[in-house]
Design a binder for these strands. Structure first.
Lengths: 142, 142
DNA sequence: GTGGATGCAAACGATTTGCAAGCAT
DNA sequence: ATGCTTGCAAATCGTTTGCATCCAC
């Protein structure tokens, strides 16, 4: 039983919700999928394991996972919402290939520090931030 | 006649398109609106000047302005696409208030330099980037 | 048994598209 | 006259919601 599964169970219990086999399957599949999945992509993977599962359930469960702190929404240029689960490994930013869609994560402590400074200079209190670089990945530069 | 209007006319001509009073009105209104407008917001302003104008035309013209290099799409958290026209004044990033929606622009040369370095380190060729900080603006911190 | 969870289909909001009519060239 | 552009309505896409049924507690 994974740590995330434990966290989710506690969240479920604390809020008087119920653990179902769909929720278990969705969490498991979500955790297994590396990177940044959209609801639709996750759904496509899920129907192979449970053809009866509904897209609405995927959306509802992803929303639950966000509330539980196990997932985080991300919006990159295309119209879709993507969900990330490995953000706990520590904050990171993204390099996105505009050709193949590959997403490369990176972390640069100095940039983070400077961003904090910008926020302070403008008297904002920060909640979160995003830094996204769009371009061509090494493979797509031809 | 503004510089942008000139650029637009050239673009129209070069692509064998036609200049219409709707396109003129939309460009003019778009340029006048400071900041980051959504198609719907622009449309609301426009129907006061020309009640017959269609929302589809607004979308089509904004798309044209993007192609002509006079506008740029931006996606902030909410579901709407926003259009920016003053990005030519030089690149800048955004501080967004999650409470009142105010958008404060800023520019920090050192951050830009570091981002270029990150891109180089990963062998990407950059096209553009965005840095967005979400939090509470001074007014909303109560 | 009861209330939350499901799958489906319908509803939704933002954006796009097909079409007949209008207007710039 | 030609064909790009318009406004309208219908279509589309991603996401949410209503509802009857189902299932975890």
């Amino acid at each position: 039983m994974s740590k995330e599964s434990e966290v989710f169970r506690r969240y479920i219990e604390r809020n008087n919700l119920k653990m179902t086999k769909q929720r278990e399957l969705i969490l498991e599949t979500f955790l297994f999928s590396r990177g940044h999945v959209s609801a639709e992509e996750l759904y496509q993977t899920l129907i192979e394991k449970d053809p009866a599962i509904g897209l609405a359930t995927v959306y509802r469960t992803l929303s639950l996972l966000c509330d539980a702190g196990l997932a985080q929404q991300r919006h990159f240029g295309d119209g879709q919402t993507r969900y990330e689960h490995d953000f706990e490994q520590g904050h990171h930013d993204h390099l996105i290939c505009v050709n193949c869609g590959k997403i490369q994560e990176f972390f640069h402590p100095h940039i983070e520090t400077l961003l904090e400074q910008v926020v302070a200079d403008h008297n904002f209190t920060i909640q979160n931030h995003r830094v996204e670089l769009y371009g061509l990945c090494p493979d797509c530069q031809k």
